[in-house]
C-alpha cells in the first residue's frame, strides 16, 4: 500500500482521531482505533507489538482533552478493569457549543478585547485559542479596537505550574518567604484559586497541615513549584470570588495615615489611589492589604512622604530608607 511508507502529519492523525470518535455512538476499542484510524493504521501491526503506538495514543488523548474535547472512556458492562475492552468516544452533545451559546457582534468585540488582556504565558495561548473557536461561529466584530491596550501581566514563574495543578486538582509544594521571617518555609497546599488583587497575583489554597485556607503572594514563592501526584477534591463553587472578597476585606480594614509634600509626585499619585481620603491639607488616609508592599511603595517616594501611622508601617518605611541610604553610601 502506498500510504504505509508516507508520513502522516501529527495534526492529521489527531484530526482523524477526533472525527472517528465523534462519529461513533458505541465507542471504539483501542485496537479498533489503532488498526483503522488514519495515522495509526499505517504503523499498526496485526501480529506484533504495538506498545509504541499505544503510548502515542495515550499522549494524543491528553493533547485532545487539553483542547476541551470531551474524550470519554466507557467500560464494557461486566468487564470493569479489563483495559482491552475499554471503548472511547466523543459525545457530540458534550463536544459542540450548545445552540443557545451564540455571541452578538458587540459581545464578540468585547471578548476580543478580553483576550488581548493576556499577552504572555499560557493564558495568552488559551485566550488565542478561545478566540479562534469564537471566530468559528462566523460573527464579525463591530470595530477593531485600536488605541486601546489593557493588559494583565503574569510575570511570576510560579503561575504556570500553579494553574496547571489547579486544573488537575493536585497538591503542590513550594518554599515561601514570609516577610519578617529569616528563612523560607516549605508549604504543602491544595490550590483553590489564582486571583489578581491590586495588581498582584495571589494563590488561595487549603493547607492540610494547619487545617486552614490561606492566601499566598506569588512573588514570595522563592522555589520552583513542585506538583505532587496527590489529588484532592475541589470545592463545588468557584472559590475565586471568595478569595478576592477576603483580600478586599483586609484592604478595607487596614488604614495608614501619611503626610505628603504638597504638589509632589506622592501627593498626586497617592491622592488618586483607590479609596484614598484626605484627612487634612497634607495628610492622606490610605487602604492597603500588605504592610511590606505598601512600605516599599511609600519608601520609593523618599522625602515626599512621612508615615504617621500605624507605627509598624512607619518603622518599616524608615528602615527601608536607612538601608537604601547605607547600601548606596
Amino acid at each position: 500500500m502506498a500510504s504505509s511508507s508516507q508520513r502522516i502529519p501529527v495534526e492529521e492523525r489527531l484530526f482523524s482521531l477526533v472525527l472517528a470518535l465523534l462519529a461513533t455512538d458505541a465507542g471504539l476499542t483501542k485496537t479498533e482505533i489503532l488498526s483503522t484510524v488514519q495515522g495509526y493504521r499505517q504503523k499498526y501491526s496485526a501480529s506484533g507489538d504495538n506498545s509504541n503506538l499505544e503510548r502515542q495514543f495515550e499522549r494524543d488523548k491528553d493533547d485532545i482533552r487539553e483542547l476541551g474535547v470531551p474524550l470519554e472512556t466507557i467500560e464494557a458492562p461486566g468487564q470493569s478493569g479489563n483495559n482491552q475492552n475499554l471503548r472511547y468516544r466523543i459525545p457530540r452533545g458534550a463536544y459542540q457549543l450548545p445552540s443557545d451559546v451564540r455571541f452578538s457582534p458587540e459581545e464578540t468585540t468585547l471578548l476580543n478585547l478580553a483576550a488581548m488582556v493576556w499577552r504572555e504565558g499560557s493564558l495568552s495561548g488559551q485566550s488565542r485559542r478561545a478566540i479562534m473557536k469564537l471566530r468559528s461561529l462566523g460573527v464579525t466584530t463591530t470595530e477593531p479596537v485600536l488605541g486601546y491596550a489593557p493588559r494583565v501581566r503574569v510575570r511570576e514563574a510560579a503561575f504556570e505550574p500553579l494553574s496547571d495543578a489547579l486544573e488537575r486538582h493536585l497538591q503542590v509544594r513550594f518554599s515561601y518567604l514570609k516577610p519578617g521571617e529569616e528563612a523560607p518555609r516549605v508549604r504543602t497546599v491544595n490550590p483553590l484559586a489564582l486571583v489578581q488583587h491590586q495588581g498582584r497575583w495571589h494563590l488561595y489554597a487549603d493547607e492540610p497541615e494547619s487545617g486552614t485556607t490561606r492566601t499566598f503572594l506569588l512573588r514570595r514563592i522563592v522555589s520552583p513549584v513542585e506538583t505532587t501526584t496527590r489529588s484532592f477534591v475541589a470545592p463545588e463553587l468557584d472559590p475565586s470570588a471568595e478569595a478576592l472578597a477576603g483580600l478586599e476585606a483586609v484592604w478595607e480594614e487596614r488604614l495608614a495615615v501619611v503626610e505628603v509634600e504638597p504638589g509632589s509626585d506622592a501627593a498626586t499619585r497617592l491622592g488618586k489611589r483607590r479609596g484614598t481620603r484626605s484627612v487634612d491639607d497634607n495628610s492622606l488616609e490610605l487602604h492597603y492589604t500588605d504592610e511590606n508592599i505598601l512600605a516599599d511603595e511609600l519608601a520609593a517616594f523618599g522625602p515626599e512622604v512621612l508615615v504617621l501611622s500605624p507605627p509598624s508601617l512607619r518603622d518599616a518605611v524608615r528602615s527601608r530608607l536607612d538601608r537604601t541610604a547605607a547600601d548606596h553610601g
Binding site: 487539553e66 483542547l67 476541551g68 459542540q96 445552540s99 488559551q126
Partner: peptide, 9 residues
Amino acid sequence: DSPRFSARE
C-alpha cells in the same frame, strides 16, 4: 458545530 471552549480557555 463549533467546539466548546476548554475550561482554561
